[in-house]
Amino acid sequence: MSAALSLRRRGPSGRLTPYGLIAPGVTILILLFAVPAAYNIWLSLHDVTPYDALGDGQFVGAGNFRSVLKNPLTLSSLKNTVLWLTLVTVAIRLVLGLGIALLLQASVLRRLRLVGLTRTLVLIPWMIPPTVAVAAWRWLLDGQAGLLNQLLMRFGLIDQGVPFLGQTSTVWWCIVAIISWRELPFVIIVLMAGLQAIPHDQYEAAAIDGAGRLRSLLYVTLPNLRPVLGVVALMITINSFNNFVYVWLTTGGGPGTYTQVLATQLFSAAFVDNQLGSGAAIGLLMSACMVVFSLVYLGVLQRRARA
């Protein structure tokens, strides 16, 4: 007897059972995701300030989107978001993350019983809240009393403190360093899990075939890691693209507007200019960018997997 036939025989209450069972989950999803998303769409179509009551606001249609797209800052924010905040930091994290994950798999660490210690040490930056991490880095990079400047002056390399966060030649590299340092452990941990899942006999077979360490890496490790790398890259790309904390707390988008990214522009529009609608419009444009990116990226991954 099929399950459907069984439910039909139980009558109306039986047919309602599945709905009753999924109702709590669906309700939570609606409350936590669908309602805020719908409210965000509503905000993007209205002129609202953070001081207005829920539901207050004047309908402006696509006006907020037009003003955001006409703003010359949007293009430079998009460039900074894509290039510096996303591409550079993701590339650095993937390369360093893979390198460190491979090093942590080294047999010498197991022999010396240092596996637990090294893994704990690697996790430390990730355990520190981003606000604390940024505060510590700001102190380190301070133009006068910062540790880095003090060291450079002590070794006679500079006469006067360098405002690392106040000059265009250094500020993005400082932000990249902060993000890479704080977010690297996540990549390492996930890649280590991926490395541990690679069957050891594949390495033995490669060794019998005469493959050295480099060839084993290229023809055994990396192909096996590809799905994990793909998922990690997608996750950290979306996370970086939407990130607000690091840039805002480090530079506030400055010097000038040099480090302004879409997330800081969103915050600035919503809570500095008091235009929640413009902020919501920027948020929706960011979401649209990430949806398109994710669909293309996953499509490419699937095609490669099929091939």
């Binding site: 106040g166 400055g254 500095v272």
Partner: peptide, 21 residues
Amino acid sequence: PVTTLTKITNAQFGAVYSGQT
């Protein structure tokens, strides 16, 4: 809003100090 005037002014003065413009 004063906050908007502040944002515009500070950003442009800072842009000159840093050599951005």
